[in-house]
């Protein structure tokens, strides 16, 4: 292979004028983490709400929940990204549209909202599956004690369901984190985008992608470890 390896490239100054290529990648990592965490907050809360709606007795709530999930699951994330970024500002009144387009860090806000809504549909499916995996008698027992619907979910169904779905929720969290890379298509300078521009500027393809790969692997390992710790912390004594 006639490829000129240069592992020292990370410590050479980047063409941006400030800092090295390593700094460039680290700033990408920062945006990746910020986008992932902010969108997860939306995904978790909205997804829980939608998931709960899909398990409620009311047919209206079920229909709303189902429509949401079908809508956001059946359009590719890239397309959703473009809809939020290019189409939405044209669909709202002009004043708001112009404001949206001129917003600093618009690609960051768009990515957060887009990923939040997208991942919410997947979180909703996990929450629904978690609640439906509980014995039907649990809901009956809570109702028989006189708890209302809100109390039944708040004190009985959700606390058990969240424990059940902790492992798949960890995967969804990681998927959400990996999906932040799709936001490079709307100009978010996250980790993959940074690795790509480092490759373009320096022509050191494999060094830049190797670095990005290692960083993603380290993030995954960390998240899996943290999730394991959380799982042990919330484990209920006496359950398998």
């Amino acid at each position: 292979m006639n490829y000129n390896w240069n592992w020292g490239i990370f410590f050479e100054p980047s063409p941006e004028g400030v800092g090295t290529y390593a700094d460039m990648l680290l700033s990408g990592l920062g945006w990746t983490l910020a986008t992932a965490l902010c969108s997860w907050i939306i995904a978790f809360s909205l997804g829980s709400l939608i998931g709960v709606m899909r398990t409620m007795p009311s047919p209206v709530a079920q229909a709303v929940g189902t429509s949401y999930v079908e809508l956001f699951r059946n359009i590719p994330l890239l397309v959703q990204m473009f809809l939020w970024f290019y189409v939405l500002p044209e669909m709202v009144p002009e004043v708001i549209g112009t404001w949206l387009k001129q917003l600093p860090n618009a690609s960051f806000y768009t990515a957060v909202i887009c990923l939040g809504f997208f991942t919410a549909s997947r979180v909703a499916e996990q929450v629904r599956a978690g609640i439906q995996s509980l014995p039907r008698g649990q809901r009956a027992a809570a109702i028989a004690l006189g708890l209302n619907t809100w109390q039944t979910y708040r004190y009985v169904l959700l606390p058990i369901a969240y424990r059940v779905i902790l492992p798949p929720m960890t995967s969804e969290f990681l998927n959400n984190l990996k999906n932040t890379s799709v936001a490079l298509t709307i100009g978010l300078l996250e980790l993959t985008a940074r690795a790509r521009s480092m490759q373009e500027f320096s022509s050191q393809v494999f060094e830049s992608f190797t670095a990005a790969t290692i960083i993603y692997l380290l993030i995954s390992l960390t998240v899996v470890m943290l999730a394991g710790a959380l799982e042990r912390r919330v484990a209920v004594p006496g359950s398998r």
């Binding site: 008698g137 027992a141 004690l145 058990i160 209920v236």
Partner: peptide, 14 residues
């Protein structure tokens, strides 16, 4: 005001 006992106990495991 109506107490109920179930076949599968249905204590809340958490």
């Amino acid at each position: 005001r109506v107490g109920m006992v179930f076949q599968h106990f249905e204590l809340f495991p958490h």
